[in-house]
């Protein structure tokens, strides 16, 4: 394979930069980063379009509707749009823009897709129950020293480590 890719940034340097981005978020807007919240807004908005009546009566979706603004006009939605743009810019500079399914050579595309779908569903579900994902609850929560942040972080990484053995065939 001809390798035109640029290498990734040194992880410690990337960590410092990510920390500064997070700090900037706190300094400017008083809140940390996030991701799953934007996906929730997308779901709520979609449900509202498909069946507005159901959306407002559902006790979860209804919470985010009825305000003066659409659920899509939220901080996290705009932030995640930024993530798309930022990721794209970085990928373009590094020559990593390419449609592909990334997987271990030991498994089929189909299997990777199914795993991604199941993993995504679990993560989406868990992020709502846990009130935030790796970025919103764990990373941002740890920065403000919140107990919730540390608990969520330990639970996410602890479970992933504990289950790693059972899913090893998919990765190594």
């Amino acid at each position: 394979m001809i390798d035109t890719k640029t290498k990734y940034m040194n992880p410690y340097l990337a960590g410092v930069l990510l920390g500064l981005v997070l700090l900037a978020a706190f300094y400017l807007t008083g809140r940390g980063l996030g991701a799953s919240g934007a996906m929730k807004s997308a779901v709520v908005a979609t449900v509202d379009v498909v069946d507005a009546n159901y959306a407002t009566t559902n006790s979860f979706f209804g919470k985010f509707l009825g305000g003066p603004n659409s659920p899509m006009k939220s901080w996290l939605v705009f932030e995640v749009l930024g993530v798309l743009v930022g990721g794209f810019i970085s990928g373009a500079f590094a020559g990593r823009l390419k449609f592909k399914i990334e997987k271990s050579p030991n498994i089929t595309n189909r299997r990777r897709i199914i795993l991604a779908l199941i993993g995504g569903a679990l993560f989406g579900f868990g992020s709502q129950l846990g009130r935030g994902c790796t970025s919103g609850a764990a990373l941002s929560g740890m920065a403000v020293l919140s107990v919730a942040g540390y608990v969520t972080m330990v639970c996410i990484f602890g479970t992933a480590f504990a289950l790693a053995y059972f899913f090893r065939k998919n990765w190594i």
Partner: peptide
């Protein structure tokens, strides 16, 4: 007031 945050 405390900023609304998190990402749930």
């Amino acid at each position: 007031q405390r900023v609304e945050g998190g990402c749930s």
